[in-house]
Design a protein around this nucleic acid. Structure first.
Lengths: 215, 215
DNA sequence: CAGTATTGCGCAATCG
DNA sequence: ACGATTGCGCAATACT
């Protein structure tokens, strides 16, 4: 469960900003309707407690997806745009956004950036106490490595999940066809019997009805 | 369908090699199944030596390095491992892998790298004609930007695809239940008719009575 | 507050 | 050469 929703207004835009010092006023507000099972409104969606729908929720699927749905300029808009042919304009190109640690020793940039952010968003959190988030610090590398591991794990999980969903879909489709066939057989058989009965009726009695109900 | 399989033996290892001047003999052949019909072959990946060694060499060495990809089993292995509780060991931690352009201007490295590769792998392709893959070159930035756009587009597409699959699965499951119900009804109806018919038979055969059993 | 899990993003290697 | 994919690490953020 746990409908994840990013509350921040512009998720990555922030970092981009800090990095490039460029403020792009993209008011892209995406809305991914991946919800299928309902609406993942703000967040505390207590509505349809999935109970009814959980027949499927079982799988796993949902926890993911939607999260981003909020206003992440990302996917949706672009999706729509693509549909229309516009799509995927470079974000703001220009600067490199990775911030990453190319070599290892160019904290100059990193620090600058750091300072900048601290200057820009003091309210959100005091980046100060974060003693030198300097790259190359052991602490930093530790965290990064742990996160990398987590990321790989998470992605692997996601891949498996997707795979399972696909397999399930195929399986269901297969089963579906079988059921359809079965229904065809039953219907045919039923028609035969009805026909026979009606014959008997005509022969034996006269106004008998093979009465049955449903469908 | 289309099980995508990377043919090259050492996907990123190559670049790694060139960058770090370290030859690691991982004969790993990654393969990614991109669609539900796929299977993760996993494959011959060498043991996991080196791990301990270069694990730390990372920090200080040259900017570009990274050699994480070493014995990275691949999704599968990790999956299995996770199942068993091992899972997701840091690749080899080692150096930062991004190689990315942290700042913007470090062609020195890039060039070195370039020369080296040209020296090492002349057979594969003459990296020569690739006039200075220098970062910050307009050409480079152009390509990067185009790729970034392509990546976003591709990922968006993937997201939608996944979403559709999920929806389809749910839809199928729903339909499935309906079909099951229908089959139940038909079966029941059929049984009734059969029963009635059998009665008629008996009646018609021995004693001919009009009576019939309800339903 | 710390640690893990997710997710968007850009990079680089490949694929087609 | 060019777009499409995919694994990977980074950073922001969600969740515990």
């Amino acid at each position: 469960m746990s409908v994840k929703v990013k509350l921040s207004e512009r998720p990555e835009a922030y970092s981009e900003f800090v990095k490039s010092y460029i403020m792009m006023s993209d008011s892209r507000v995406s809305s991914v309707i991946q919800d299928w099972a309902g609406s993942y409104p703000g967040q505390a969606n207590s509505l349809n407690p999935t109970t009814a729908t959980n027949q499927l929720s079982q799988m796993d699927m949902m926890p993911y997806s939607q999260s981003q749905g909020l206003m992440r300029g990302g996917s949706d808009d672009r999706g729509a745009e693509q549909m229309m042919g516009l799509s995927y304009l470079p974000y703001s190109s220009s600067c490199l956004s990775n911030t990453s640690n190319a070599g290892n020793h160019q904290q100059s940039h990193a620090n600058t950036q750091q300072d900048f952010s601290s200057f820009l968003m003091p309210t959100l959190r005091a980046p100060v106490n974060k003693r030198s988030i300097s790259k190359d610090s052991v602490e930093y590398r530790m965290r990064r490595e742990r996160n990398n591991v987590a990321v790989r794990k998470s992605r692997d999980k996601a891949r498996r999940r997707i795979l399972l969903t696909q397999q399930r879909a195929m399986q269901l489709q297969e089963e579906n066809q079988k059921l359809q066939v079965r229904i065809g057989q039953l219907t045919q058989e039923l028609d035969s019997l009805k026909h026979i009965l009606s014959q008997r009726h005509l022969q034996g009695a006269d106004g008998g009805a093979a009465g049955e109900s449903s469908i």
